[in-house]
């Protein structure tokens, strides 16, 4: 029975599970595509505007486009310093 358990254990901890998890994330990301080409420029412009009022880091603004069926969600996340 110990031998059997050994194989069972390997099955659940094998690298195939990691492969599947990585692929699911990657494929979902690939399918979304990079979004419209203006997204990086939009992010830069937003940074410039915010910097007129507060000093923020380059990574303070994140722009993310999600597609859900026919619906598109543009998500803006701005982290202001304390």
């Amino acid at each position: 029975m110990a031998l059997l358990d050994y194989f069972r254990q390997r099955k659940t901890t094998g690298s195939a599970a990691i492969a599947k998890e990585r692929l699911q994330i990657l494929v979902a990301h690939d399918r979304r595509g990079g979004g419209p080409s203006y997204l990086p420029q939009l992010k830069n412009d937003l940074l410039k505007v915010i910097r007129k009022y507060v000093a923020v880091d380059n990574d303070a603004v994140s722009v993310n486009l999600e597609r859900d069926g026919a619906q598109e969600i543009l998500e803006l996340n701005i982290v202001l310093p304390d």
Binding site: F7, R10, K11, T12, T13, G14, A16, K20, V27
Partner: peptide, 16 residues
């Protein structure tokens, strides 16, 4: 290799 958990199973590939 699928049984040993070393290779993506058919269902996994189909799922994706």
């Amino acid at each position: 290799r699928v049984q040993r958990g070393e290779m993506l199973a058919l269902e996994d590939v189909q799922d994706i």
